[in-house]
Amino acid sequence: MKVKLKVWRQRNADTPGRFVVYDTPELNPNMSFLEMLDVVNEQLTLQGEEPIAFDHDCREGICGTCSLVINGKPHGPQRGVATCQTYLRSFRDGDEILVEPFRARPFPLVKDLVVGRQAFDRIMTAGGFISVRTGSAPDAHAIPVPKEAAERAMDAAACIGCGACVAVCKNASAMLFVSAKVSQFGLLPQGQPERYRRVAAMVEQMDREGFGACTVTGSCEAVCPKRISLDFIARMNRDYGVALLRGA
């Protein structure tokens, strides 16, 4: 199969960008979207052109590095997968595919399809951790964790921090990411001592970065490659309210 790619090209943040159309060579339908970009880049390199810059790392859906808005949807047409797990068989032969970078003020464009997502790192630095003595591993059952809490914390921790929630949200809000990261600690006994200080610090860092607010449209949940639930946002809202009242 072959497709026509309409890709956002931009040398750097200071130069204006534009869409460029590329006709791909013959492709295997079982290639991932990123492998297809590799093939296109090889061809561009052979032609002496600048290859398309895009983010990628593990290519197995667990690192959260790949991004891209494909035909208007972050991570492409399938649900519950990242761009690296989006395969060309999801498209038809001869399709024109529009590829754009994530668009949000806190995600400044670096080059072509690469955006800086350090805003997420700064939110994590503000409170996304548990201050504990790091030594030898504790005994497995030294701290009892209810099964439900363990499972819900795991659901929250499944967030890979890719930023698709921000990319799709009409307000470029990072609530789904922040709420997942607040909850993965807040649901566990080890996270309790810093629970309210953490939520206040992370929410306030999120605001400083310039992300929008939540209108509860639910599109973040719909495009999340890890299907993080909106319920975590409600949980964060609850915790932040308590943090305000406690003056945390």
Binding site: F19, K73, A104, R105, A172, A213, T217, G218, E221
Partner: peptide, 30 residues
């Protein structure tokens, strides 16, 4: 105020037409 800060959070719009992805019409037109 929220509308203004939400708009400011995405200064460059997408070229692809806005699609709802799980968002109801009422939620997008509040």
């Amino acid at each position: 105020r929220l509308w203004a800060s939400n708009r400011a959070a995405r200064p460059v719009a997408y070229a692809s037409s806005a699609t709802s992805y799980g968002a109801s019409l009422s939620s997008r037109t509040m």
